[in-house]
Design a binder for these strands. Structure first.
Lengths: 105, 105
DNA sequence: ACGATAGGTGACCAAATGGTCACATGTCAA
DNA sequence: TTGACATGTGACCATTTGGTCACCTATCGT
């Protein structure tokens, strides 16, 4: 199963935070990402490698730097696996209701 | 973080298979789900508990039976976290292209 | 009432995972 | 060309996780 890498990659909070960082701005280098985390460079590197092998992050080399980009395709595939077209409207409605309730509290 | 439970729950292939089973047909009991897996009842029970705590599965008791239902809401939330509305069209197009390519091969 | 059936708990073990470090390679800039 | 900087590798350790089992409780049908 190739999807296993994706889910394993998403299982760690640090890796999700890295995706969040790349979601706000793409094309960052390892050292730039490292500066946002309370962790050694090696730890961050390991996490980025896992994300890359899961195809959630794609990279491009530029001289001695390696630029990281978010790839949303695998996320979309997760969605499509358990949300069928018929009930999607319903699910969205539930989410909006939940958001409203949380705003009030 | 409450989302941590969701991602941890999805990280295991057995749990994803359980979700697949419930996706095809809801309202199954523990023993019915167990019969579909090569694992002891206790293993399946542990997995179902993790899914339930992540709110990916909701349950209802009926006598001595416990019925399990798939809840798609957390899946939808994952999607919305990293797919912004603007690029969603683009991602869908990529997926369709990928599906076409795989059909041909 | 009572055996059979459905579900539940806690302890326990092997394997996978997250994190750090010493050390190494490649590239920039003066 | 040489020192500083960006990235990479392998070994290593503590913790978490997946799985099983002995034992227990609750409910059904007869």
């Amino acid at each position: 199963m190739t999807d296993d890498r994706v889910f394993k990659a998403l299982a760690d909070p640090t890796r999700r935070f890295l995706l969040d960082l790349l979601f706000t701005r793409d094309g960052r280098t390892l050292t730039e990402l490292e500066s946002e985390l309370e962790m050694s460079r090696f730890g961050v590197m390991k996490h980025l490698r896992v994300l890359e092998e899961a195809n959630l992050v794609v990279t491009r080399r530029s001289g001695r730097e390696k630029l990281h980009f978010l790839n949303p395709v695998p996320i979309r595939e997760i969605h499509d696996r358990w949300i069928d077209k018929y009930t999607e409207r319903h699910t969205t409605a539930l989410l909006e209701l939940k958001a409203e309730l949380e705003d009030e509290s």
